[in-house]
Nucleic acid binder design. Structure first.
Lengths: 159, 159
DNA sequence: TGCGTCATGTCAGCATCCTGACATAGCCTC
DNA sequence: GAGGCTATGTCAGGATGCTGACATGACGCA
């Protein structure tokens, strides 16, 4: 019945895909009680660390397009989790900030996500985790991927 | 960073997502000359290892729905990379097999994908790779993800 | 001052993948 | 043999994210 080559089973790339998919699915399930998608959670998390971000900046930070970020922001704003000025203060950018509700929801979401990650790494020691983090970061870097969330052009932090 | 500080840069989950995204992007770019998407490549690869799979079986093997698999198969069949009988032989399942063209295209695709994976792991020794593969597989398993790609339809991972 | 360039927000269209539903073929139980 | 159960193929609709395009505001330079 299973007389196939073991190609896929021994491929790091395939394992990477499977693990990432499993993580995404698990996070999605964990965040469901809060009625939050993974993308929305990421958005809130980035916004907490960098308040006042515009939609375009946030898009770059979360590796999506401006359009997707915009749709995401609209939904979260409608739910009162974040606020944006109706008119731009200086340029065209609309700086976004979390509301009190947003901070609260994010705190709970963070807890849930942390539980998922803890479950994923339950069998790993601290040094195991550090090593895995290192390996994954190296993989992304080797593929010329923006590994840092702050690679926004307007950050003015050239290499 | 008082009590809820989650630094994205030191999160294994985040690194996993970034690495997987980078890999997918790189594979997509590598396969573009063959006019093949990653999903299509996966489909061909699974089909090579397990000829005669039905659309539903292939869907389970590639972690997508029957509908997605069906659409994928139609496209690949239209391009002459695989063939399916017009009428079911015994049940309703339509066993799918690669054509000669399909085998040829897949061979080239496999080469391109292998180059990408090699680039990703360029700085890793054989034992590094084995360890990373182990870690990723363990992560997926801990999240209750179906790890087996070449298994029978019943993945055998009950809750 | 006037113009070109860039960044941003926004609209429209397209692709992909999903959930939901339905019809049919084979198998199992009675 | 009849009826249910499961698996498969297929159609319809929706959610999400992308590319392309356009208008506007800030900035740099002749």
């Amino acid at each position: 019945m299973t007389h196939e080559g073991v190609d896929l089973g021994s491929s790091v790339g395939y394992a990477l895909k499977v693990a990432a998919t499993a993580l995404r699915t698990a996070m999605d399930g964990a965040l469901r009680p809060l009625d939050l998608s993974v993308s929305q959670y990421s958005c809130l998390e980035v916004l907490r660390q960098r308040p006042g971000l515009s939609a375009a900046e946030l898009a770059r930070a979360t590796f999506v397009t401006r359009q997707s970020a915009h749709a995401l922001l609209q939904g979260l704003e409608h739910r009162g989790l974040l606020s944006r000025p109706t008119a731009p203060a200086s340029g065209r950018a609309l700086p976004t900030r979390l509301t009190a509700d947003g901070v609260d929801v994010l705190a709970r979401a963070t807890r849930l996500v942390a539980e998922v990650e803890e479950r994923m790494l339950a069998g790993a020691t601290a040094s195991d985790r550090a090593r895995l983090l290192d390996d994954l970061t190296a993989c992304a870097a080797a593929l010329d991927a923006p590994v840092a969330a702050g690679r926004a052009p307007e950050d003015g932090t050239p290499a």
